[in-house]
Structures are given as structure tokens and as C-alpha cells.
Design a binder for these strands. Structure first.
Lengths: 326, 326
DNA sequence: CACCAAAAGCGAAACGATTCGTTTGTACGG
DNA sequence: CCGTACAAACGAATCGTTTCGCTTTTGGTG
């Protein structure tokens, strides 16, 4: 593999001139020509490791997230990667699978690995732990989808409470008063916020809250599936169910269908995230649709600003969700 | 930020002893203790850039793929990342969005960026171009899902032809003889193979091939959606349709449902990939299910073997798909 | 207690770029 | 023809590790 030294020798100029040329500095035309030829002849490529050592940056952004199977995450990551790449950064992902030990380990791994910035969907980490792991490094971090309360840093979230409020209100306006909710672990930020929206919608419409109608467990297919069984077994089952996550929604619908429960006649369902899938049902299953692309773009933009030296106070953006169909 | 030199000074031993300690070499217990204390006191972490430069490796694997929104890709990447991380590698992704210029650019970007290995789902790149871009680097590559014909390297594929053969045979056994197929671009490896399985199934069952019944376009929702319109407009529409991709399947079902076409009575559909989603329909829509986890694991294992020095001939694994429901 | 092999420690030379301060080269006006 | 000003080229130092060849220390044995 040719080094900058070889190029200098072949082109007949000094190493520093090659470096200047490579980095877009001014070089005499005849030298530029000679350098070009030498580079071509030797098939020279700058060694990224040497450069990184010298400048102490890697142009690499870590993305730490709990899952990638659900389309929500894939779409966000795709959008992140696109924007970051346009600015010369690459995307290093790390999936912890909602496994709490892994969440720490992978964060440590990313950090000790020379990332320039971090995009993070937290789940279990506490504020103190986060600072303990990241403080000494001092790289910019953008939290997305969820936040660790107390961590001061940029964040891109959606208006969970408001979106759920509207969705549940729609169910109420359709005449439902026994409305269940199936949601993720109550410790998870999004679950809390979404539950909040649900409660507020009930209360604003004068509906009494019944804790039999609240199911909270892993963000998983099984939670929706078993939730359906649980709800149907109640003395007075709900007439409508709101779900707060892709997998839960799919699980619930599957279980309902298997039991011959008619949707929406026997059980009206309002889901989350699975836009294309739910649009395909007859009648279309209404869902809350998060702006995945925008989340990725905004997070990337925040990060790049910080990497370019912006040093303002932490910013939190709340992006609006849409209800689909409108 | 503390360096190894600082640790050496504080611990009262030489730099090389620190290095040895850090890399698991034998060190006298008293020294080990002193080193541990110095590291803790200084909050020392080895500088990854310096290490990479010295050893000329990054422990980073590039993953180049066309899309991430469909759950298939997310699941494969998740499984890749898991296995790689267990072996101390991290995963650097790059999505080219079925954009041919980007496929080249992103490959170049990854390569000039010091990856130790590559996992690649190719789409448009030719064999020559691939070699031109990668030859001088000499990193191990595993192609997954698809291959560039002529490229000698490890590959992990599924038995596309066989899976489709069986799926279409099922439709035939149910009595269908006018069976359409909606598939991706004919230039794409998987589309070709899947189309091959379809043709073989027809021919083995003595059914004449009708090219009106073959629709080939982008792997996208719109292709399935419009495909439905096209097929229904035929003088003699098909009684069954086989789709070869997640997005196409969803598009087709959506269009059918919107038109009041009953599934399976008016149009029997056999889909691809969307396992949970299709299981949730009534009756469940049968699909070809690819072993995403196994694809990721196998690819990662191949790569790691090569990175550990294995230098045997290229290996191609064909993993079996399942039909679901069985 | 002396000897020896094995173990551990040491210092210096890489790895391949960027960068800073200095020297050389070029062009132009007086 | 010389002096000056400015651009370009240069050389050396540096980033923080790993590794190699050698010296010192250690601990077991006769």
C-alpha cells in the first residue's frame, strides 16, 4: 500500500505539499499535475487511521438503539445515515435489544471506539450512569424518541401526549367509553407520555379511568396478543383499544382476528406506527404515524451543528405526529 | 485526556508495560495493581486512533445495503451487529436507497474509511466495477441476499428458486392455473431467481406461461398497488398472485382490499417476507419466510473466520426458506 | 548460596498522516 | 537590475499506540 511518502518521492515534491493538495490547498499547477499522476500510478489512498490519529476525529457517529426489526427504527436510521453521509460522516450502529446490560456495554463500546457524536434512544440508563460513561469524552449527543430525564443535551421527540390525546379523543367521539390501552413498560419514557395522553383524553371527556383497562408490558408482539385475551376475559370488556407500538398493534390484531372478533364492530382499534400495514386493512385501521424521516434529519442536523462548533444551550424539538387516515 | 505515557509515569513503569497490561499480557501483580490505580486515577482510555494506526485495523465492518425500512433488512442487520459485536467488531452501515450512483459512492466511502470487512447486498454494481473499487484494498467481503455474478467471495443466500417453486406449486395444487407474479427489477439477482422458480413450477405442472401475468418493477409499494390494477384490467385476470417482496405484497393487498376484491376467494395471494403482518390477516395470508437471523449470523461468522486468517476457497451458503403458515 | 532458564520490563523505532514555522521561488514596480 | 511582497514548498515535530530486540529481575533447583 502506497503512503504519502511514496507519492512525494514519485511526484518529486515534499510530503507536506501532497497533504496540502489532498486537503484542497493551493498547489502550483505543474505540481498538482505531477501529484495527480503519482497518485494514479501508485493507486494512493490516504490512510484513514493516520489521519484520525492526527486530527483526533473519526467522522463517525454512533447510533445506539433498542431494536431494528420494527420499521420505525429502520426508517429513522436510514434517514440519519443519509443526512450524516452528506456531511461526510458515517453511521455506526449498535443495537442493544432492550437488554439492559447490553445498553451499557454497547454505549461503552461505542465511546471507547472513537465516535465523534452519538445518537441515542435510551431505555434503562439513568442520568448518572449516562454522565459517568460519557462525561470524560465530551462528544455531542442527541437523544431521539425518548430522553433520560435530567440529561442536558439536544433531543428530538414527538408529541406523544398530544398525538395519543387526539387519537383517544377520536375513539371517544365515535361513542366509545370503555377504552383500553396496551403500552410498553411504564418505566419507558414514551410509554409514560402516551399513557399520559390517554388519561388526559379520558378525563377531559368525563370518562372514569379503570385500571383494568391499562396493560403495560414489553414492546412486543406477545404483549398485544396476550393483552387481547386479558381484555376479552374481563367482565365488561372494552369496546375500543389503543396500542402504543408497532409490535403490540400487530399482536393485538392477530389475536382478535384469530378469535373472530370483528374490527371495528366488536373491538375498535387505534394503533401506532404500522402505517402501510394498517392502511391495507379493511376498513383501514387508524394509527398514529410518527415522522421518522424528519426525526432522523433533525437529529443529524443538530449533531452536525454541534460538530461544527455550535455551542448554544440544549435544544428539544417536538415533532408532530399525524393520525392516518386523516 | 490522559495518554499511555501519563499512566506510565504515574504507575512508575514503562510505556511498553502498560501496553502489555492493556492487551492482556503478563505483568507482575504489584505492577498490575499500580497500573490499575493509575488508570483509575487518570481515567485513562486507550486512544483508538493510535491503536488503529499502529495495527492497521479498525475492528469495524461495513454493511452496504439498499434499504432499511423493510423489516427484512432491519432484522438481518440486527443479527449481524449482534454476532459481530460479540467478536469485538462494530457495524458501520450505509444505505444506498436503490440509487445506483450512491451504491458506488457509498462503497467507495466505506472502503476509504478503513473497514476491516464488508457485508454487501449488491444491486447494480458490475463485477468489474466491484473489483476495481475493492481490489487494491483486499478486505474480506460477504455478499448476502444477492450476488454479483462473477465475484469470487463468500456469499449467504436463500433458496429463492426452490422457495418460490414450492409456494407457486401450492397455489397450483389449490386449483389455480392463471397465476400472476409481481416481482422486482429483472436485473436484480433475487428477482431473477424467484421468477425462475415461478416458471419452473408452471412448467412442471403443465401450465402455459403467459407473459401478461408477469409484472416486474421496483421493489416498492406502488409496484404491488399498480400491479393489482393492471392484472384486474386483463381480459382474463389471474385467480392467484405471487409477490416476491414485502413492499409489493403490502401494495397488492391494499389495492385489492380497496377494490373490494376478496382474498382468497377472488384473488388468492401468496406473499413474501411480511410474516407477522400476513399472519394477522383473516385468513392468514401465506408467505415465504426468509431466515433473517440465520443470514446475519452466517455472514458474520464467515467474515470473522476470514478476519482470523482463514483462507479457503469462496463459500456460498443457501439457506432454506419456510412457507408460513406451514 | 550460586546458577540458570523463564518471565517481565525497558527503550526506541515504527505506523502515516497533519501542521507550524521557515525557506524558497516568482512577479512586478521603481 | 534590485528589492519587496506574497504564494507555494519544505522539513521536522507530533498524534498515542504497538512491537521488537535486549537487559534485568525473578524464582526454582542442585
Amino acid at each position: 500500500m502506497a503512503t504519502i511518502k511514496d507519492v512525494a518521492r514519485v511526484a518529486g515534491v515534499s510530503i507536506s505539499t501532497i497533504s496540502k493538495y489532498m486537503n484542497g490547498g493551493n498547489v502550483r499547477p505543474d505540481n498538482a499535475q505531477a501529484i495527480r499522476e503519482a497518485i494514479a500510478a501508485l493507486d494512493y489512498r490516504a490512510n484513514p487511521f493516520a489521519r484520525n490519529l492526527k486530527i483526533q476525529r473519526s467522522r463517525s457517529i454512533g447510533v445506539l438503539l433498542p431494536d431494528m426489526a420494527a420499521p420505525f427504527y429502520g426508517t429513522v436510521v436510514m434517514s440519519l445515515d443519509k443526512t450524516l453521509r452528506e456531511h461526510g460522516y458515517h453511521t455506526q450502529i449498535s443495537v442493544y435489544g432492550s437488554n439492559y446490560g447490553l445498553e451499557r456495554d454497547n454505549l461503552r463500546f461505542l465511546i471507547t471506539n472513537g465516535i465523534d457524536g452519538l445518537v441515542y434512544i435510551p431505555e434503562d440508563l439513568s442520568c448518572d450512569e449516562f454522565y459517568e460513561l460519557t462525561a470524560s469524552i465530551g462528544i455531542p449527543t442527541v437523544q431521539i424518541d425518548r430522553i433520560i430525564p435530567g440529561v442536558a443535551g439536544d433531543a428530538v421527540l414527538v408529541d406523544n401526549g398530544e398525538a395519543v390525546y387526539q387519537a383517544v379523543s377520536r375513539l371517544i367521539e365515535k361513542g366509545h367509553s370503555r377504552i383500553a390501552i396496551i403500552t410498553g413498560p411504564k418505566s419507558v419514557f414514551t410509554a409514560k407520555e402516551r399513557l399520559g395522553g390517554y388519561l388526559r383524553a379520558l378525563s377531559d371527556h368525563g370518562i372514569l379511568f379503570d385500571d383494568e383497562l391499562v396493560i403495560s408490558d414489553q414492546n412486543a408482539f406477545a404483549t398485544g396478543y396476550r393483552g387481547c385475551e386479558t381484555l376479552l376475559a374481563l367482565d365488561e370488556p372494552p369496546t375500543a383499544v389503543f396500542t402504543t407500538n408497532y409490535d403490540i398493534t400487530i399482536g393485538l390484531v392477530t389475536a382478535a382476528r384469530e378469535r373472530g372478533v370483528r374490527i371495528p364492530e366488536d373491538m375498535d382499534i387505534f394503533g401506532f406506527d404500522c402505517v402501510e400495514v394498517c392502511a391495507m386493512m379493511r376498513p383501514p385501521l387508524p394509527v398514529v404515524h410518527q415522522p421518522e424521516q424528519e426525526i432522523g434529519q433533525t437529529a443529524a442536523a443538530y449533531l452536525i451543528e454541534r460538530l461544527n462548533g455550535y455551542d448554544g444551550p440544549p435544544r428539544t424539538t417536538r415533532l408532530k405526529c399525524r393520525l392516518a387516515p386523516e
